[in-house]
């Protein structure tokens, strides 16, 4: 067992566990978007950031992937953590102001839309990749993928076309946190 602290409270976990796993086991709330217990962690949304002091230096890491180590001191609400989290929610909210899941997050953290708020988008995709990972790791058909990069990055199927391999199982729409997958799914299953 590995012993360390979260917000000053001593906690313990097995070797190989992540900070997020230990935190949730102990009832400490850390928000996530791209995390799902059935899938490999991906580390894209960065909502689950925490500050870790390993005795040498203090840095901001993502709790869903950071393996616990003896003696580390974890802060889930430090000013640096709060600043990252607030900005991520701000950016997400401005991208898809109508998404219920994002609205809920915004409400919890007291974030309101800014002057850069996008108009006309109800369910923007935030590229959390749950659908892609579910399609690959759970369903095993590897139809969905990330296409392109940067601001043009999007969830697609090859050639943006209907796929022969798609089973039409709908796992992707089920797991999608924002509802953006519905449209893509219609196109992919053909």
């Amino acid at each position: 067992m590995i012993t360390f602290t979260i917000n000053g409270k001593e906690v313990r976990g097995q070797d190989g566990w992540t900070i997020l796993e230990v935190a949730r086991w102990n009832g400490i709330e850390i928000p996530t978007l791209c995390h799902h217990g059935a899938l490999e962690p991906y580390g894209a949304c960065r909502l689950c950031v925490v500050e870790v002091n390993d005795g040498k230096r203090s840095r901001v890491v993502i709790s869903c992937m950071y393996p616990i180590r003896p003696g580390i001191q974890v802060q889930t609400e430090s000013p640096r953590v709060a600043n990252v989290r607030r900005w991520i929610i701000q950016l997400l909210l401005d991208e898809s102001p109508e998404s219920p899941k994002i609205q809920e997050l915004a409400k919890t953290f007291g974030v309101t839309p800014s002057r850069f708020k996008k108009a006309g988008v109800d369910f923007a995709c935030h590229l959390c990749g749950l659908c892609v990972r579910a399609c690959q790791e759970v369903v095993g058909v590897q139809v969905l993928t990330f296409g392109n990069r940067g601001l043009r990055k999007a969830i697609t199927s090859p050639f943006n076309a209907a796929s022969k391999e798609c089973l039409g199982c709908g796992t992707c729409t089920y797991i999608c946190p924002t509802g953006a997958m519905d449209q893509v799914f219609q196109r992919v299953k053909g």
Partner: peptide
């Protein structure tokens, strides 16, 4: 940017 994480892509 590869576009994977939100702070880089949208920030």
């Amino acid at each position: 940017s590869c576009g994977k994480c939100i702070p880089c892509r949208l920030g």
